[in-house]
Write a protein that binds this DNA or RNA. Structure first.
Lengths: 202, 202
DNA sequence: ACCTGAACACCGTTCAAGT
DNA sequence: ACCTGAACACCGTTCAAGT
């Protein structure tokens, strides 16, 4: 029997032969992928690098993940779990404001993932779905229903993800333009958000 | 001497030896890259596939393009040349509306490139710069200046690119949700655009 | 200056086999 | 079921050499 300890950082010297277990689980694969992404960025997140960090051969990942797309989809939805839903009795427009602001903040904390939300056209995982439903409930209480609610939700989500995507460097602008401090980006985001909410509720 | 004709589609059987010219130019490389992208999509746009379509060895592209990033940056800015600037004497808010609507339409016509605008954080090419200046001029005539103009421009650009990015499939929504027809997407885009413009001008 | 052949250092993924 | 070795079919890019 191998020793019980099997940290994600432990890259044992002793190689395994076929048939021996490495103690891999989907959860450990995803957790290590989050680590790798946070520490070394999106370009370093390869199946092979992930396998190496887990002390495992590259193809063994496919026992726990269908393919790289599946992996990335899971990472994207995981991050959305960090978004804070507002209290149920909140003023609906204020609730929408806070919900989008929280989403924006969470996305800013994971800058490498934001382009992937765009490339993969959002997320359809359970956390994304939950957020979408919270938004519809708030819109309903704000008097926006049916097709108009779907349109409003779409506008808010697109704006929020878009702003996070361009947080680091302003788009379409001079090279000389300074990279804005985070506080100014957030203030800028909230200006536009208020305009949208005024239009939606008005 | 080889025959004069050297179309981008002609993949001559006769191989060239080192020292023989293939008649490549940066313009022909970019034009063929646009073709490849339009016909076979972003995943098919590889340096090797591009070289093959040009009837040339992969490394020869590096005589006309610094690297793949340089290529993509050029493609991105090229597309922005299609955006129509409004007449100089237009009502400024209407002008902003039309400018962003034109940008949105152009982006929708090149869906594969949109995620790249996000990944590359916009474009800083000459066409992008021209658009940015037109926007500032319109904002100025609408009474929005200084830092507020930069913020307003940022909001409008981010919203426009973001909406184009999610045109095909709604983000954060149910799997059952139908993919919206283009006309509805455009109407949805313009609703949000009007809200933003009202906030900016108000 | 522009192009080729060959090579380098990677990728994601599949297949057969071992326990 | 879970893992390995080996391989497949790719990438972008560099280097030396040829005219």
């Amino acid at each position: 029997l191998a020793t019980v300890a099997n940290h994600s950082t432990a890259r044992r010297g002793a190689p395994r032969s076929p048939g021996q277990r490495a103690g891999l689980t989907r959860g450990r694969v995803l957790a290590t992928a989050h680590e790798l992404l946070a520490e070394r960025g999106i370009d370093a997140l390869t199946m092979r690098a992930l396998a190496e960090r887990l002390g495992v051969s590259p193809n063994s990942l496919y026992s726990h993940v269908a393919n790289k797309t599946d992996l990335v989809d899971a990472l994207l939805d995981d991050v959305l779990a960090e978004v804070e839903a507002p209290p149920v009795d909140v003023d609906p427009v204020a609730g929408l404001h806070d919900l989008m602001a929280s989403t924006h903040g969470v996305l800013l904390a994971h800058p490498d993932l934001v382009p992937l939300y765009v490339a993969r056209q959002g997320s359809r995982g359970p956390n994304a779905q939950r957020l979408g439903e919270v938004m519809l409930a708030l819109l309903d209480r704000a008097g926006v229903t049916g097709v108009q609610a779907l349109e409003a939700r779409r506008v808010l989500i697109v704006y929020t993800i878009g702003f996070a995507a361009f947080a680091v460097r302003p788009p379409f602008e001079d090279v000389g333009e300074r990279p804005l401090p985070a506080a100014e980006v957030t203030a800028n985001f909230e200006s536009g958000l208020r305009w949208l909410l005024a239009g939606i509720a008005g």
